[in-house]
Simulated assay, not measured.
Amino acid sequence: MSTESIALEHPSSIDPNKVKVVPLRHPWRWAAALLVAIAIIMMVRSAISNPEFQWPVVANYIFNPMIMRGLAQTIVITILVMILAVIGGTVAALMMLSPSKLLSVPAAVFVWLFRGTPALVQLMLWYNLSLVVKEFSLWLPGYGTVFSITTNDIMTPFVSAVVALSLHEAGYMAEIVRGGLKSVSQGQSEAAACLGMKPSLSLRRIVLPQAMRMIIPPTGNETINLLKTTSLVSIIAVSDLLYSAQAIYARTFETIPLLIVVTFWYLVVVSVMSIGQYHLERHFSRDERGHEPGLLSAVFGKLFRFRRKEVMA
């Protein structure tokens, strides 16, 4: 009987000093990686060498003041809309979970309406609200009109964009928050009630902290998606990043370089947001992740991970 057979039958008799560790070979994996690398190099080389991309023009406009103002406007709209959407979506989610039909039915209709219609259609409707509502006024019996203001003075392009996108995103956030709250076992709320906690205190101290693990990832994805959706506001003349680029290339006819600049800044902001989302997820999952590596360690660990196979000598 060979030494290897004896070792397999009696694992306790294996001498660790005689075990030879040999890397497991993956020739086809390396071949596929090589083909992908070659394809990427060829595409990058083609893009760099193509004069039609006008890279000097791209470099000239990358920090253009008009582009920077448009980028700031895009970020402001994204932040405002997301704050309002989270508040509105959370309220709608709590209403949907209420046992009262007077609360749950209107909330369900709200989600159905604003989640079911395209964002562009909602933008156009709110921007043209003055066609059906001429003015906003407050009238009190025995006193008369307290104030009156025309709709056009209120529903500016910026306000229309914020209102439309906030309501649209609130429909999605309501489902995200509702799903997160439903993921927490009902026994948690029952145990809190047995300890004498009020429902509001139980929600803040028990349910929400656990639900955040399920809420944060889709909320981060929705925020990133919202950032890109804000490009629709250029339709109603809001001077966001895309609209600023359009205003420039309408004069200079340098369309492709300006669109590359817009793409670059969207990718930069999305990358920063993705890093923030990663750390938020780690924070709310800190009791489960243990000694989970950081972002760079996780990325490079997956890129340069080699499996090993133990072979007995």
Rank of each mutant, 00 (worst) to 15 (best):
I48F: 04
S49C: 04
S49G: 12
S49T: 07
N50L: 07
N50M: 05
P51S: 01
E52F: 07
F53T: 08
Q54W: 06
Q54A: 13
Q54R: 13
Q54S: 09
P56F: 10
P56K: 12
V58C: 00
Y61A: 03
I62D: 03
I62G: 00
F63I: 06
F63K: 11
M66Y: 11
M66C: 04
M66L: 06
M68Q: 15
M68G: 09
M68H: 14
L71P: 01
L71Q: 14
A72W: 05
A72C: 08
A72G: 15
Q73W: 02
Q73M: 14
Q73I: 06
T74P: 01
T74K: 09
T74Q: 12
I75T: 07
T78N: 14
T78K: 15
T78V: 07
I79D: 03
L80S: 10
L80E: 14
L80M: 08
V81G: 06
M82Y: 07
L84V: 15
L84S: 11
L84A: 15
L84N: 14
L84W: 08
A85T: 02
A85K: 14
V86W: 02
V86L: 14
I87S: 13
G88S: 11
G88P: 02
G88N: 12
G88K: 01
G89H: 03
T90E: 05
T90W: 00
V91L: 08
A92S: 09
A92T: 15
